[in-house]
């Protein structure tokens, strides 16, 4: 009952708001280039479905490529940090600098360096830069948060650093990593969108570019349709990572446990 309500209530609210929107647009004769009605957005979505799907695919690809690169680099560097304090002291400040610099600001530079003929690589790189830091910092923290008694125990039995890493540190870091992946998934989507905005006309083909293009042409309904797809993409990414987290942690981790009634 409660679960049904928690699904149904937001759904009903959403439908009510859409109805209100539709009504206000109709009654007040708001022009479609200012605020299109939901029905107009739906029509635009259907009319441009094939091309919007291609754009979605393009943005999704960039997002996932960027995310994968950030994951590999972030986890790899975190592992390196866990093995060498010196390396961590040396590199971590630069990782922070990277984090606090708004990547949007270096996006044009990256586009120029990588080149517009390899635009997808440039976009993925920007997406990766945005997603990189939370993965690095959370995994670093996670690798350090392993029960030190357990690590002592491993040492006592003659375990090598790699055995300690593999058997104790990495599993202990998993909850932190999965939490970071949820954040980083959303961030790499933002990175991809920003990168497409910066890349501008003629090169990018993703949803963000469609938004710019539709805006220029005052096709506001198409703009909304692209926006809707972007939101759905973000939700799907978040849901996917939440599902992964649940699947991997539900049996043992505190975060997934609740007292049995």
């Amino acid at each position: 009952m409660k679960r049904a309500a928690s699904l149904l209530l937001p759904l009903l609210l959403g439908l009510a708001l859409l109805g209100l929107w539709e009504g206000v647009v109709a009654v007040r004769h708001i022009p479609p280039y200012v605020l299109p009605a939901p029905s107009a957005i739906a029509r635009a979505l259907i009319a441009n479905f094939a091309s919007l799907m291609l754009s979605l695919l393009s943005t999704l690809t960039v997002t996932l490529e960027g995310f994968a690169a950030a994951l590999v680099a972030g986890v790899g560097l975190a592992i390196a940090f866990s093995q060498s304090r010196t390396l961590e002291r040396m590199l971590y400040p630069y990782a922070v600098v990277l984090q606090v610099t708004p990547v949007v600001a270096i996006a044009p530079l990256i586009l120029i360096w990588v080149g517009f003929e390899r635009i997808d690589l440039a976009l993925a790189l920007i997406a990766a830069l945005v997603a990189f830091f939370p993965i690095l910092s959370n995994t670093t923290l996670g690798l350090k948060s392993a029960d030190f008694h357990l690590i002592d125990l491993m040492r006592l039995y003659g375990a090598s650093r790699w055995q300690i890493l593999w058997r104790v540190r990495l599993p202990s870091a998993l909850p932190y990593l999965l939490g970071a992946m949820k954040i980083a998934g959303g961030l790499s989507l933002i990175g991809a969108v920003v990168a497409e905005f910066v890349a501008g006309s003629g090169t990018a083909t993703g949803l963000a570019w469609r938004i710019v293009e539709a805006g220029n042409r005052l096709e506001i309904a198409t703009l909304f349709a692209a926006l809707l797809l972007l939101a759905l993409l973000g939700i799907a990414l978040f849901a996917g990572f939440s599902l992964l987290e649940w699947a991997l942690l539900r049996r043992w981790h505190e975060s997934a446990l609740r007292p049995q009634p």
Partner: peptide, 14 residues
């Protein structure tokens, strides 16, 4: 050859 039992169980929760 040593065995060590800590004050806490110190098990791998996973």
């Amino acid at each position: 050859d040593l065995g060590f039992v800590f004050q806490e169980p110190t098990l791998m929760p996973w």
